[in-house]
């Protein structure tokens, strides 16, 4: 039986030596700018989507081997109708939300679990929605977000397998919820009148995906931190396999930044973690923890803490301005 003291000690012990971040304010400022840009772009995108009323016919089998994509940080730009997030729309609905009718429902017939469910409330990023498939609520959160990835599905595959039936009709429901207060609480008010919608995209092979117009050259290569291990497309080339060493542990990890399009596969000691995909010229980044707990929970890779490992990064079909991996070393 655990005691209160043990519980307090456990919580306290695990936050000792929290990693520093001297540029947090700069990163937060960058997010604020990006948020504003997305908000502006999202409004325009929503108008286009509603006008197009995209409903693509159901797919046929044979796309199950399609590779990846990650939820992207910016709305797709100048994308051919029906394509986004590395996938092709296989079902969509959008309509007016009201207290009496807060939801839209549509049917999809996926042939693989390489899926993204995107929500949209007319560009209103403060709106909250709940997403359900076949009556199973998957999650609720900010409208405008995407659920899942067309990369290797990752841990989402478990949830997809639980609620989604391949090669069969699946009912998707997007329900607009009451707005939230500033602090994130759902307000005790009726569902507001507005827009609610969703689209399901299924991954297509990278080479078959219609990329948006090239915007190479519009982004300068970011400044780096020479004190940390870095691999980047500027010094080692756009495509190829690159490695670096690390020691697993609570503070070990690395960041991947890129402006695509392109694919980046990541493995640790030969065990696949994830394939990261970019299908546009937006800035993307993600962090990867190299602790035993995170590797097991997020990727099903079992390695003990304190082990010297080799991280392998393989870029392919990369046509964007840059990608960069920065190893995070304990300080």
């Amino acid at each position: 039986m655990t005691t209160e003291q043990q519980l307090r000690e456990t919580l306290g012990a695990h936050v000792e030596g929290a990693p520093g971040n001297s540029d947090r304010i700069g990163q937060v400022r960058g997010r604020i700018r990006a948020h504003r840009q997305r908000r502006a772009a999202g409004t325009a995108l929503a108008l286009a989507v509603v006008a197009a009323a995209v409903v693509v016919p159901l797919t046929t089998a044979g796309r199950g081997s399609a590779t990846h994509v990650q939820p992207i940080a910016t709305p797709p730009e100048q994308q051919p109708a029906g394509y986004a997030y590395g996938g092709r729309a296989i079902g969509s609905a959008s309509g007016r939300s009201s207290p009496a009718q807060p939801r839209v429902t549509f049917t999809v017939r996926p042939t693989s679990y390489l899926l993204v469910i995107a929500t949209d409330c007319g560009g209103d990023l403060s709106a909250e929605v709940a997403v359900a498939v076949n009556g199973h609520e998957l999650t609720e959160g900010s409208c405008g977000a995407q659920l899942g990835q067309v990369a290797d599905a990752g841990a989402a595959r478990v949830e997809w397998q639980r609620v989604i039936h391949l090669d069969a009709p699946n009912t998707v429901t997007v329900t607009r919820l009451s707005d939230t207060n500033d602090d994130g609480h759902l307000a005790a008010t009726p569902v507001p009148t507005g827009t609610v919608g969703g689209t399901v995209y299924q991954g297509v092979p990278f080479t078959a995906y219609p990329l948006p117009p090239d915007r190479v050259g519009t982004y300068p290569f970011p400044s780096g931190d020479s004190a940390r291990t870095e691999l980047d497309s500027r010094t080692v080339g756009a495509d190829g396999t690159f490695t670096f060493s690390a020691t697993t542990g609570a503070k070990a990890g690395f960041e991947l930044e890129l402006i695509g399009p392109g694919l980046v596969d990541i493995a640790v000691d030969g065990q696949h973690l994830q394939t990261y995909g970019s299908y546009d010229y937006g800035t993307q980044d993600d962090g990867y923890a190299l602790s035993a707990e995170a590797l097991a929970a997020q990727y099903g890779v079992h390695l003990p803490n304190g082990k010297h490992v080799t991280v392998t990064v393989t870029a392919s079909d990369f046509a964007g301005p840059y990608w960069r991996v920065t190893a995070r070393t304990p300080r």
């Binding site: 695990h14 936050v15 947090r24 602090d183 990890g253 962090g287 923890a289 929970a297």
Partner: peptide, 28 residues
């Protein structure tokens, strides 16, 4: 950040959560 870590159990995710919350707080 320490609070975020106890919730997310991963430093990178904790940093992401914290920055997301700071952006929301900045707005208000």
């Amino acid at each position: 950040l320490r609070l975020s870590y106890l919730l997310t159990r991963d430093w990178a995710t904790a940093e992401d959560l914290l920055q997301t919350a700071l952006v929301r707080s900045w707005q208000a």
